[in-house]
Amino acid sequence: MYEIIQKLHSWWAYVAFLLLVIAVVNSLIGLFSKKEFTPNDKKIALFALAAIHTQLLIGVIVYFVSPLGFASLGQMKDAALRLTSLEHPLMNLIGITLITIGWMKHKKLTTSKSKFKTFSIYYGLGLVLILSKIPWESWFN
């Protein structure tokens, strides 16, 4: 069971990452080209939000059933275990929180520039935090 959930978490990471990159690039293009914020721009950001929240849900399940997650929290001297049991989940949680805040803040804004700027900042920061703690050695295996 663990292997299936872990593979799903690994596979879905590619989808979530791609959608998040698309959302950040789209918001930067919208911001710098001064275009109007359209329903398609909102959908792009929403799909990225949904994908990253799905990844979080799968990740929480993996965290509690994995021997490398919650069960290994006491072994902080091992860098690989520290990454999987503390650093990766914590930084991703902070990144996903920033993305969620960006989504919530955009709802209250009225101008296209402010919406694109909000998505660029919050989704961009969330993406950087997530990228900073991806276990890269296992991404391409």
Rank of each mutant, 00 (worst) to 15 (best):
L18S: 15
N40F: 03
F47S: 14
G74V: 08
L18M: 08
Y14E: 01
K77M: 11
A23M: 11
A50R: 10
A80R: 10
T54H: 10
L8Q: 12
L28R: 00
F32S: 00
S33D: 00
M91W: 04
L56Y: 09
K43N: 01
F37I: 05
P89Q: 02
L49K: 06
L20T: 08
I61N: 12
G69C: 08
L83S: 09
F17S: 12
K7H: 06
Q75V: 02
L90I: 04
A80V: 15
M76P: 07
I52Y: 04
Q55E: 15
G69E: 14
D41S: 04
L56N: 10
S85W: 04
K43F: 03
N26L: 07
R82F: 11
K34C: 03
L8W: 12
L90Q: 06
V15S: 11
G69D: 06
V65K: 10
K77C: 07
S85F: 06
S66D: 04
V24K: 01
V15D: 03
G69M: 14
H9S: 12
F47G: 00
L57R: 03
G59A: 15
P39L: 10
N92I: 09
A79K: 15
L68E: 14
K77F: 08
I52F: 02
L90F: 05
K77S: 07
I52E: 11
A48H: 02
Y63H: 07
L18F: 13
F32K: 00
F70G: 01
S66Y: 15
K7M: 13
L18Q: 02
N26Y: 05
F47D: 05
G74Y: 15
A79T: 03
L57A: 13
H53P: 05
L46I: 07
M91I: 01
T38W: 02
L19Y: 06
K35F: 06
I22L: 04
K7G: 11
L68Q: 14
S66M: 15
K34R: 09
I61F: 14
G30H: 01
K77A: 02
K35D: 06
S66K: 03
I44S: 01
L8S: 13
S10H: 15
G59S: 12
R82H: 14
I58F: 08
P89C: 09
P89S: 09
A50S: 05
Q75E: 11
G59W: 08
I52G: 01
A80I: 05
M91N: 05
K42W: 01
F47Q: 00
L81Y: 14
F64L: 12
L56I: 03
K34G: 04
A16V: 11
T84L: 08
Q6D: 12
L20N: 03
F70Q: 07
I61Q: 12
L20P: 01
L31D: 00
F37K: 00
L56P: 08
L68N: 10
